[in-house]
Amino acid sequence: MLDTILQQLIIGLTNGMVFALVALGYTMVYGILEFINFAHGDVFMLTSFLALTLVGLFDLQGASGASLAGGLCLVILTCALFGAGLNYVIDRLVYKPLRKAPKLAPLVSAIGVSFILQNLGLFWGGMPLKVFGGGNQAAAPKAFPDILPAHNLLGAGSGLTLMPKDVLVIGASLVVMAALYGVVRFSKLGKAMRATAQDPAAARLMGIDVDQVIGATFLVGGGLAGFAAVIYSLYINTIHYQMGYQNGLYAFTAAVVGGIGNIPGAVLGGLLLGLVRAYSDQFIGAQWQPAVLFGILILILIFRPSGLLGSTAREKV
């Protein structure tokens, strides 16, 4: 029993880290623009296609030791940069011209971008690459090879399984989140982001180039999504051009439950969602997952409508 509880803890945490990383991108953009970037989940999806392409390109399947470690670092770095760049370009091309438009215009455009990215994912999956199964059946789920050694770090005899990829997902995510915390808390850019989120007009009066801060926020959020795409793919071993939709909605929910606009809230919401999902699958049954999961999340929102860490206390004026 204890083993089962601990096992689900590992599963919940690993999944939760992915939700948290994606949720951060939603929440940071919302915090500044009060806008839900519905294409965010698809930046995550499209980057996973890049990750798979690179795994093929670098021939990481079957690699080991230094060449695996080096290759993996390169994949993570490239994917983070790609996610960052893609998110930034989407903002500049689509959202920025609509900054002063009625709120529905950027929202609908974001949904449009989401579909366009899915279309690109479908196209990418149809490319004649070996890792994509030679390009047949573009729409089919693509197997993402298990490139990390698959052995139990706790010993073959243990009732609990902890694989290298679990350690990688949890460890690397924690490092990335700590780095994000440091940037937002201590760097000049991070402070400018917080100031802009709290009062954009006042931030402008301080000489902050708000447009640049918004761009930086899309870069950071996209980078996190790109990183999440690699660890998700390594962990789940399947990617699909529509996976941005469900994962994106889950991560968005996590951001709202944690308190939209609140950075620690997004992490808390993501981990909570991962854990509730894992325990509900184990003890109630996977067929009830959506009902149980969203039932619990709705309950949380009924009692804390601004989310777990969202500000409910009114600030003094």
Partner: peptide, 18 residues
């Protein structure tokens, strides 16, 4: 229009942003 969730020192720092 102070930044409510930033500290007093951080608010002053934002004044010196440029």
């Amino acid at each position: 229009k102070v930044f409510p969730r930033m500290t007093v020192a951080e608010n002053l720092e934002m004044g010196a942003y440029t």
